[in-house]
């Protein structure tokens, strides 16, 4: 697959069909009440997602990416957390207005989630088949036998070998990669509109990670599911997503298509992140010039209960000036479909 940049940009999603908006998140705000006071884990986050699209949300630990995912699923532990504002509109229904029983009918049915650690998110005392069929019996009203048939079919779809035997096994009998396949089978069994994948490959080895990412993309094309991919790994983003949101300290700081973000990152945080990852092959070409040093982002992510005035990234930012330290920059469209919140994005 070698072709010019322009061709790739035009054909990058392959046979992917991007449809209408299925999910619209508007001004989502989630707070936690802690001993250190109230913290805003998700601070007025908005985005939309179309059918068949993969939207990546990236950032370091504590940036609010997982909290955004859990807020969409309404799985924020309350107390101490609470969703205090915004809308999460899935096919015209605001999930935040639903009662808990109504929401339960959505979860695993219209919107599903897979987690980082497949061992802790599967029930250790139920067979894999029981766990997959439960969702089908609950949401689709299938009989136990029909649901088990469908569970076997789903395992075949996610390429688990010998699915008829595997449905009778318990999670501990499966490898990490197989467990994540089971999680995916379970999440997709009711053919949801949106799949939220929270660091789905972080706990896996690279060869298994490649298999699982490939599987998610293949199933997405087959089923037309929209995917929100939460990750800290920019390389995974580059290989799987069409659009990216970069988060820092609970807020969106940048948003663009994948090609645009990687070729023209605007926010200093995004630039810093990209420069700080060691890349395969980089040392071969640039070792002489750089002296082998990786670019560092000084300092660390500030705790949410102690955010600075103005831009939260200012204390670590080489471009920060008094303006940055005094006033949070507006979130603006700097190039077509490329948004960022930085006073110096035009420099």
């Amino acid at each position: 697959m070698t072709s010019t940049t322009a061709e790739i940009a035009a054909t990058a999603p392959g046979e992917r069909v991007i449809g209408d908006t299925v999910l619209a998140v508007e001004g989502l705000e989630t707070v936690f009440y802690t001993r250190a006071g109230m913290v805003r884990a998700v601070d007025r986050v908005s985005f939309s997602l179309r059918a068949g699209e993969t939207l990546a949300v990236v950032g370091e630990s504590g940036c609010g990416k997982s909290m955004t995912a859990l807020s969409i699923m309404r799985l924020i532990p309350d107390p101490p957390g609470r969703i205090v504002g915004g809308k999460v509109v899935l096919d015209g229904t605001d999930l935040l207005q639903l009662s808990e029983p109504e929401m339960r009918k959505m979860r695993g049915n219209r919107v599903s989630m897979i987690f980082q650690e497949p061992m802790t998110s599967l029930n250790p005392v139920l067979t894999v088949g029981r766990q997959i069929s439960q969702a089908l019996m609950m949401h689709q009203g299938m009989s136990r036998a029909a649901a088990m048939e469908r569970a076997i079919e789903m395992l075949r779809l996610v390429k688990v070998p010998e699915p008829a035997q595997r449905v009778k096994e318990y999670p501990h009998q499966l490898s990490g990669g197989m467990r994540q396949r089971v999680m995916i089978a379970m999440a997709l069994s009711c053919n949801p509109r949106v799949l939220v994948a929270d660091e789905p490959t972080t706990a896996l080895d690279v060869t298994i990670q490649a298999q699982i990412l490939d599987l998610i993309l293949e199933l997405q094309k087959k089923l037309g599911t929209a995917v929100i991919l939460i990750t800290h790994d920019l390389a995974v983003v580059a290989e799987t997503a069409q659009r990216v949101i970069v988060m820092y300290a609970g807020r969106k700081v940048e948003e663009a298509t994948v090609e645009e973000l990687f070729t023209h990152p605007r926010h200093p945080y995004t630039r810093g992140l990209m420069a700080s990852i060691p890349r395969l092959g980089l040392m071969r070409s640039q070792a002489a010039q750089t002296g082998g040093r990786l670019q560092e982002i000084p300092g660390m992510v500030p705790p949410l209960f102690d955010l600075p005035e103005g831009c939260a990234y200012a204390p670590r930012c080489e471009r920060a000036d008094d303006h940055c330290r005094a006033e949070y920059p507006p979130y603006e469209e700097k190039r077509p479909a490329h948004w960022t919140a930085c006073w110096h994005a035009d420099d």
């Binding site: 940049t5 490649a210 790994d233 090609e259 990687f262 990209m274 395969l280």
Partner: peptide, 8 residues
């Protein structure tokens, strides 16, 4: 298998 941070 190592993902590469370059979408192009």
């Amino acid at each position: 298998a190592v993902p590469v941070p370059d979408p192009l």
